[in-house]
Design a binder for these strands. Structure first.
Lengths: 249, 249
DNA sequence: CGGCATGTTGATGATCCTCAAGCTACGTGG
DNA sequence: CCACGTAGCTTGAGGATCATCAACATGCCG
């Protein structure tokens, strides 16, 4: 059941490639996942012209920090990011994990400053979209406006799903639901759905799901012992998806 | 400290007035809170022309139900609504409460169907905005597009704040934070900030915050005994806001 | 190779849930 | 207008889930 890592490219490897060279949207491997999807050739070139391709970020580096002044949205080009919200007393909540093609920073649009910090989980890169220019452009290009509405809406729906998990589900349901959702997202991006490397630490997973790190660790070994997953460090294989689906409803 | 109810109009009373007659946006008491804010006169009339003013809904009636086909966003005109997400196994999570001026249904934009059910908490009414027409209109009217981006973004930021509460905070912090946020929202709408009627039941509050009813009940009496609030049924007075602020950080 | 961050496993305990019983309030119908 | 029934709310006792504390193992990076 475990896919051969030599056959199925791992996210890490692909990320490394993507870092190398990236010139225009229409030559980008992410094109089909990314914002410009559906744009006409001319419009695409216009959008292309406003995009700032950022230099790669190392693990732990910030794409932006909470309370910094907001100017751009970012599309993840390679690697993975987390967004972290910090409360007045210092407690933190990871509000989301973002994979290539995902749009980050949308919660800042209505204010002048970023509402959370975005941090690279691995070596990663992202394309910056200056918001004022994006706004003008989306005014001129209906398909782009629609894309942006859709992205905002999708993120909303996602968050509400997460609210359900945090509010109503048990620790096991949260964790398995998280793994299944991650699997789906890898699959959408053309990676293996049943065997992948977790881009985030247990600490991050635990925080994101409102659990203690020890709980996550225990549940993972429990799943492993039950033969439902194979788990060696950050490498995860989902061995019995039907059963896992039952576990998270 | 408790405001006189005869001086400060209660939400309920205002709601009753709003129900009566409502012809155009520019004669609407909600104008300054609502979507058309900032639109020029001509644009406002155009927007006005696509709005479907719904008939009032009684407590418990649905504005729309989850999985119904999506066609309109709604602005709350009077009263209050909750949105409920139902899981496969029947468990429910209230993902939000909506007061006059709030926009409902945005999480459905990226799909063909509503992602949650919207239910009136009291006698309420809402204005329907057919999404396809709104989309066209926002293409033509920059200020409207901006408004919609802002609303979507604000809801996102809200949800992420709620994620923080559900993931990291104690029962007391959740509850007090909820009351304080509600107070702020009433204040923004011109109602009394320190004395108001809860539009939702304890059951709804508990569900929304991921708690048991009994916990909410106990904490409220605890706050009441401590003299921080005055609580008689759905009537709530916030007596010691500084202290309350400390309790929720 | 050494040091530190991360992860695992076990023992203990607190927060909050569940179950249970009774109370209050509200709306409906007699 | 009052009686009744139901839904919502309160309060108490007991218990489960999951957090905390602690010690140790692992693995990664310089």
């Amino acid at each position: 059941m475990i896919q051969n890592a030599a056959i199925i490219p791992l996210l890490k490897d692909v990320a490394r490639q993507e870092h190398q060279l990236q010139l225009t949207c229409d030559s980008c491997a992410l094109y089909s996942l990314c914002l410009p999807l559906g744009l006409h050739r001319n419009d695409l070139e216009t959008l292309d012209s406003i995009i700032k391709r950022s230099k790669p970020l190392a693990r732990g580096q910030a794409l932006y920090k909470m309370a910094e002044s907001f100017d751009s949205l970012y599309v993840v080009r390679s690697g993975a990011f987390k967004t972290t919200l910090t409360a007045a007393d210092g407690r933190e909540q990871i509000t989301g994990f973002y994979l290539p093609g995902d749009l980050i920073g949308m919660d800042a649009i209505h204010t002048g400053q970023y509402q959370a910090s975005a941090t690279a989980l691995t070596s990663s890169s992202a394309c910056g979209l200056p918001y004022d220019r994006l706004q003008d452009l989306s005014q001129a290009i209906p398909a782009l406006q629609q894309q942006i509405y859709n992205r905002l809406s999708k993120e909303l729906a996602n968050d509400k799903q997460l609210l359900m998990a945090l509010g109503q589900k048990t620790a096991m349901e949260k964790l398995v639901g998280f793994l299944m959702a991650l699997s789906r997202r890898f699959e959408e991006r053309g990676y293996a759905a049943n065997r992948f490397q977790l881009p985030m630490s247990r600490i991050d997973i635990a925080n994101h799901l409102g659990l203690a790190i020890e709980t996550v660790s225990r549940l993972l070994t429990q799943l492993s012992n039950g033969g439902l997953i194979d788990c060696q460090g950050k490498m995860i294989a989902l061995l019995d998806k039907p059963q896992l689906k039952i576990l998270c409803n």
